[in-house]
């Protein structure tokens, strides 16, 4: 239900930096209560496991728009919305360098 991940890349800087660790949880109640601003981990075909900030959720709750904080971030502007089924967790704790 919980796992530790290591961040690679700087698209979420200054919230998370390259090399930081995060605790990701996929406890259903947490994933049901997602809100804009939450950091989510998901599997994106062609990109692998990504971590981004949740921007919006579609009215039916199935499609998520995600973004990075860096202008050059690869996010929903590049690959479109993320299906809720692809979610692997929500970040509940982070450990910075």
């Amino acid at each position: 239900m919980c796992k530790i991940l290591r961040i690679r890349g700087d698209s979420l800087s200054p919230k998370l930096q390259d090399g930081d660790f995060v605790l990701s949880s996929k406890i259903p109640i947490l994933l049901k209560r997602l809100q804009p601003g939450d950091l989510v981990v998901f599997n994106q075909p062609g990109y692998g496991v990504l971590i981004k900030e949740l921007e919006t959720i579609s009215p039916d709750g199935q499609s998520l728009v995600v973004r990075g904080l860096h202008p050059d971030s690869v996010d929903s502007r590049t690959f479109g919305t993320v299906s809720r089924r692809s979610l692997q967790g929500k970040i509940v704790y982070s450990i910075h360098q």
């Binding site: 796992k3 530790i4 991940l5 290591r6 961040i7 690679r8 890349g9 700087d10 698209s11 979420l12 998370l16 390259d18 930081d20 660790f21 995060v22 990701s24 981990v41 990109y47 692998g48 496991v49 990504l50 971590i51 981004k52 990075g68 860096h70 050059d72 971030s73 690869v74 590049t78 450990i95 910075h96 360098q97």
Partner: peptide, 21 residues
Amino acid sequence: HNLLNAIDQKLHFQRASAHCD
């Protein structure tokens, strides 16, 4: 962080990419 870093050397936690292009 140092502790996790040491564990990561052994266990290799999964990476989550927050990458740019």
